[in-house]
């Protein structure tokens, strides 16, 4: 449990984006994504503009392009869907390199690819610049119900408990002569999944009772207690406003 206080996508470094209050970043990401999604899919220039905005934020946050692209592969299943569309779509067709492609399908593929990628990149930048604790604090300040932030707090803490417990059980199996080739490992894991749950729960329950006995009342104390200043909100508003301006410009043109 000692290690996992940051999630795997967090990049521990100092930058303007990292210092921004979490609630500002969450709101900015949501607004930017909404603008991207409502943009008509034919407006190629607008999407180029959004991509430039994402690149600029990445540069300010000192996130390397390769890091971003590698993590963006999470949307591959949707890209595969996009690849299928030009072949499966209906309506008017064009011929390209000897393949008959549906125009609607091509636009649909582009739509999914462009909006999906921009959304994933925006979320990745949020994740890369915000720690777990900050994110929950941001949600809390945005008046997210306390039940949800409480569940989220425990969830992120218990993920480490769960992983550590699974590792202990695996080591216990190995030390008893277990042969972890792929399929066998799956079987042992499936048989042990209930035990894993219980062991993790009983450990987690002890953690919880320890927290309660030290004065936990359902909300973690915020050490610095600094909420976002007007200046931070203004800084955070820059990206969504620019995106909105791009959208207005292309739609009204």
């Amino acid at each position: 449990m000692g290690a996992g206080h940051a999630h795997p996508l967090y990049l521990d470094q100092a930058s303007l984006v990292h210092r921004l209050a979490p609630e500002v970043k969450i709101v900015a990401t949501v607004l930017f994504t909404v603008v991207v999604v409502v943009t008509p899919r034919e407006e190629f220039a607008a999407f180029a503009g959004y991509a430039a905005l994402v690149a600029a934020v990445a540069a300010v946050a000192r996130v390397r392009p390769l890091w971003l692209l590698k993590r963006a592969t999470i949307e591959l299943p949707f890209v595969l869907l996009a690849v299928v569309l030009p072949f499966a779509g209906h309506g008017e067709r064009v011929t390209w390199l000897g393949m008959s492609l549906s125009v609607d399908g091509l636009y649909g593929a582009w739509n999914i690819f462009a909006k999906g990628t921009l959304g994933v990149l925006a979320s990745l930048l949020l994740a890369a610049s915000t720690t777990t604790r900050d994110l929950i604090r941001g949600l809390d300040r945005l008046r997210c119900p306390q039940v949800i932030t409480q569940i989220a707090t425990f969830m992120l803490r218990y993920l480490d408990v769960l992983t550590a417990e699974a590792r202990r059980m695996r080591i216990a199996r190995l030390s008893r002569g277990h042969d972890p080739r792929f399929l066998w490992q799956v079987k042992a894991f499936a048989v042990g999944v209930g035990a894993l749950f219980l062991r993790a729960f009983e450990r987690g329950e002890r953690v919880y009772l320890a927290m309660v006995s030290r004065g936990y009342t359902g909300r973690l104390p915020a050490p610095d207690g600094s909420t976002a200043t007007a200046g931070q909100w203004a800084a955070g508003a820059v990206v969504p406003l620019l995106a909105g301006a791009i959208a207005m410009a292309v739609v009204l043109r």
């Binding site: 969450i26 994504t33 909404v34 999604v37 959304g119 979320s123 949020l126 994110l135 949600l139 969830m155």
Partner: peptide, 19 residues
């Protein structure tokens, strides 16, 4: 619980679109 998982996955792991 499931919603919390989805919200966190969306915000911290870029899994699933925000909109």
């Amino acid at each position: 619980c499931v919603s919390t998982v989805l919200i966190i996955q969306c915000l911290l792991f870029a899994d699933g679109g925000l909109t």
